[in-house]
Design a protein around this nucleic acid. Sequence first.
RNA 1: UGGGGUGUGGUGUAAUUGGCAACACGGCAGUUUCUGGUUCUGCUAUUCGGGGUUCGAGUCCCUGCACCCCAACCA
Length: 558
Amino acid sequence: MTNGAGEPLDDFVRELVRDDLANDRFGGRLQTRFPPEPNGYLHIGHAKAITLDFELANEFDGICNLRFDDTNPDTEDTTYVDGILEDLEWLGYQPHVAPLYASDYFEQLYEWAEHLISEGMAYVDDQDAETISDQRGGFGQPGIESPFRTRSVDENLDLFRRMRDGEFDEGARVLRAKIDMQHENMQLRDPVMYRIRNEPHHRTGDRWHIYPTYDWAHGQSDAIEGVTHSLCTLEFDSHRPLYDWYLSKLPLPSDTPRQTEFARLELTHTVTSKRRLAALVEDGIVDGWDDPRLPTLRGLRRRGYPAEAIKEFCSYIGVSRANSRHQIELLESFVRQHLNATAQRKMAVLNPLRLVITNWPEGEVNEVEVVNNPENPDDGTRLVPFTGELFIEHDDFRADPPPKYFRLTPGREVRLRGAYFVTCTGFDVDDAGTPTTVYATYDPETRGGNAPDGRKVKSTMHWVSAEHAVSGSAALYERLFSAEVPGTETGDPMDDLDPNSVTTLDNCMFEPSMADLAPGEVVQFERLGYFAHDPRTQLLFHRTVGLRDEWARIQQRG
RNA sequence: UGGGGUGUGGUGUAAUUGGCAACACGGCAGUUUCUGGUUCUGCUAUUCGGGGUUCGAGUCCCUGCACCCCAACCA
């Protein structure tokens, strides 16, 4: 991967890795991991972390694994592990070994907890969550010590074993690390290591009644796997001292993993918090986790975003410690760049208007040759049937053209792509004055799209033969949230939802070759944009992203 | 309120670690074109404020300000 200037990636993480390697810190080894919690689907923000973790391993001859951080049975489910596996594979990354699970380390974690207890560094607290929270103190105010903090090692061991054996109710007791209730970093005020949960776990079933917290599980899991660089997002910065504290108290080799934090990815006009995404799905605002308006990986995939474009975007934006929100337009420019090079061109009329060629020989069908992708001659050409009755785009005809309008208008000659020059001779309107049929004559000399006398036209338009067209639907998407930063006005992002974020056109006319498009295939509708064939519904297309549209800009400026 | 983190064009990311502030997206003006797409060219605009050190500061020092994170038995 390279940055925008085509240079190898460089950032503070790579610099740090290079230093560690140069100083032989981990015996010259690099190992990362991507540690999702299986309680939701992956989104574009995860793609940034994934790209970092895996590309880093590629660059430094290291390895990267996938580890499910499944320490909380309340919310986790195998549905999500399957989904995450699918999404990761789609992105094109292959973990070094089969998926790993923090839950596979529960036994080891438990033993280490007993070790800490034996060393007088952990204790069982009988108080409830609220009491513990109150005693923790606040910013600037020291906490107070739990009355159970001075329990004997033996009593702690006994209680902890009985917690494990399921003797107590949920919430009745916790195991806490004995660190410092006065510490200025709240994370170090005797954090909870284990809580009692009688919920079945998606992998360990009902074998455990106690579950490790994130802090107690994460660093140790890293150590068990041999992770050298544990990359996570900025909000874990204040947890790093705790990460290091646990590792330093356990019988481990001295080269313990090193946690480094970077800023998470935020995008304009969307949200990436799991809670908010779940709300959009559950409240029926979108159609499901793979709704093309969502920034989920499955949503983007259905929308037609190429995995390559997503990865290039993630590499390009780099990694830093500054919170920032990238413009969605940048992602879209990567998508266009990729699709422009790869997508096959098709002619599709979204809002059909009848065009009758009055001098066309009655009943004649003429196959004209059009290019599949001008960016890639190897993709060849195809034949498209041309007849005397066609559909053109409603927007491509104006009875009364505004300035700078180059398309079809009475008396004007334009080119029908790959076919002929036609000149508009008249049109019909309905009672509302909307054109219903346009009439034109064609010039037989211009077959193939060029005039032997060298005369030029200002516009080339797409078309389909009425007799041969296949009909279908197209979903046109706007941004899900109209505000750049949803929620800036009222504090609630949901207030910025665009109620019209999707427009579905059901009377689209497609050139016949589109009947053969594979599910999920992404093509360019000439002059309109890139469209992804729905994976399940034949001839339903999702607009991935429009083409850059100068005419729209001219109109906007007025 | 204590601790930690971060401030570079409209947006994001760089700057050989003290030496001409650059790249991309966007915008604007052209060019090319059988897509008002693509290509190509040009233009546009940046170091949070105030002091200081220095021949020279985005970079070092002092100070102020703004924003983000931390007081779950979530991750």
